[in-house]
Design a protein around this nucleic acid. Structure first.
Length: 152
DNA sequence: GCCAACGTTGGC
DNA sequence: GCCAACGTTGGC
């Protein structure tokens, strides 16, 4: 069982968008970064915990949690010429990009803002603090506990 | 909207 | 395989 932080721009796909999905299950697609892809494809497991992070918005923050209900499968958008995630070089035999399904689990009572995370010594090791741009990142069990507590 | 910190592309 | 040019992310 592992823990992850998934970033999303709330204008594109927010935690409440996930909650509104049938069964509260949504596809986490559109990942087009190799480092994030590799985590998704090779390490994200069924039942893993996900911290839902809102980026590129007024108050960047972790807003709730989800859990992984389906492990990696080829992202259908890469084969769709109409999609902005279309990839000419991807084939069904040799897919380049992957996605997972996650299920809404909880909304934090209090969003945990990036600003607050940066100020907390217990969270100084987070990839979010050290390397801003990665959209899927591993979280330690300690960090998971700390962040859930801060958000409740 | 600016810009720093990456990541990707492609000529050589 | 180097590296310059370009593109993207995302905080501010």
């Amino acid at each position: 069982m592992n823990y992850w932080l998934f970033k999303s721009e709330p204008d594109e796909y927010s935690l409440s968008d996930l909650k509104d999905e049938p069964g509260q299950v949504g596809r986490w697609d559109g990942i087009r970064n190799y480092q994030a892809r590799n985590f998704l494809r090779d390490q994200v497991g069924k039942g893993d915990g996900v911290l839902f992070y809102h980026s590129a918005c007024k108050i960047p923050a972790i807003v709730g949690t989800a859990r992984v209900v389906r492990t990696a499968y080829p992202d259908p958008a890469q084969f769709d010429p109409e999609s902005k995630y279309f990839d000419l070089k991807a084939t069904a035999e040799n897919p380049r990009w992957f996605c997972v399904d996650i299920q809404w689990q909880s909304e934090f009572t209090r969003p945990v803002a990036l600003k607050e995370i940066k100020q907390n010594p217990a969270l100084a090791g987070m990839v979010l603090v050290k390397q801003g741009r990665l959209s899927i990142q591993p979280i330690t069990a300690d960090e998971w506990r700390t962040l859930k507590q801060l958000g409740s």
